[in-house]
């Protein structure tokens, strides 16, 4: 609320009855509006997912998740995240390290490019891979001649997931690295550390919470991504379906109980992510508390 105009009422005698915040009725209205909004758009849908999932009982729930096709979807989702997240971790650290610690030509272009996956619709991100690696695509003939399948196969899903999630780590790290400046690295250098030692002993530890925060967000998105993956997947059951795609198929087959059961897995993931994010955020704030410059 930017309109936090306080008014100070001061008694002519006796103790001061100062009031530097909004009147109580405004506070109550604001709290109710916020809670109402959160309830309607977050808590009710979340509750609905779990009620629908367990509507037909625990056994149906377990059966829906234990089904081979569902298990394959879970495996594929985990595989895509297991490849995309480490890759983006390395890319994110490298990109933010150069952007925050060095001056070079084209730095602003690089920053803009990192944001590209955020700006582009995920469906377009998926289509790019079809245009490049599909049967009629740029590399289509060459890939077919060498029997390499990228789209409508696991590599396509990994590629699309990686593309969509690559800004997360870098975006999180760039401001953290910029705010710590280069003093500590220079100190390490003068003290005899080489580049790798400086990076692993000084730079990385000072950004570790920001890094973990970025990885958590990256992972959540990698597992939940629908649009880009949907385009390159081809929806082959048990082979190229991730959890979100599997949920869609079940839903379209009017198999609501199973759809919501599998969806509840993603909802669980969201809750775990939120908890982890809150914890990391707390640590992060503690570690980046500004050193006051006083005696």
């Amino acid at each position: 609320m930017s309109a936090a105009i306080g008014h100070l009422t001061r008694g002519t005698s006796g103790p001061r009855t100062g009031q530097l915040t909004e009147p109580r009725w405004i506070q109550i209205i604001l709290i109710l509006v916020t809670l109402g909004f959160l309830g309607l758009f977050l808590f009710v849908p979340l509750a609905a997912v779990f009620t629908e999932a367990f509507r037909k009982g625990w056994s149906v729930y377990v059966a829906a998740i234990g089904e081979p096709v569902a298990l394959a979807a879970i495996r594929l989702t985990l595989l895509a995240a297991a490849i995309a997240v480490p890759f983006n971790l390395i890319f994110g650290v490298a990109a933010s390290w150069c952007i925050a610690k060095f001056e070079f030509m084209g730095k602003n272009i690089l920053i803009t490019l990192i944001d590209l996956p955020f700006a582009v619709s995920p469906v377009i991100s998926g289509l790019i891979y079809i245009l490049l690696f599909g049967a009629q695509g740029v590399f289509g003939d060459w890939l077919q001649a060498h029997h390499v399948q990228i789209v409508f196969a696991v590599p396509g899903i990994v590629l699309a997931t990686t593309f969509v999630t690559f800004p997360f780590v870098a975006r999180e790290l760039i401001p953290v690295m910029q705010s710590t400046g280069t003093d500590q690295e220079e100190a390490a250098l003068v003290l005899g550390a080489n580049g790798w030692q400086t990076f692993f002993k000084v730079t990385l530890p000072s950004v570790k919470w920001g890094l973990l925060y970025g990885v958590i967000l990256c992972n959540a998105r990698a597992m939940g991504e629908f649009g880009a993956v949907s385009v390159v997947s081809g929806h082959i059951r048990g082979v190229t379906n991730t959890i979100p795609l599997h949920v869609e198929i079940l839903y379209n087959e009017y198999n609501f109980a199973a759809a919501f059961a599998v969806a509840s897995l993603l909802a669980f993931l969201a809750l775990i992510t939120l908890a982890a994010k809150t914890y990391v955020e707390h640590q992060f704030q503690k570690s980046s508390a500004v050193i006051p410059v006083d005696s």
């Binding site: 003093d183 500590q184 220079e186 100190a187 390490a188 080489n194 000084v202 570790k208 570690s287």
Partner: peptide
Amino acid sequence: RDRNVGFVFQHYALFRH
């Protein structure tokens, strides 16, 4: 790193972790 000098920065530049 090969000059064997000690450097003290205005804002300390201590390793905070």
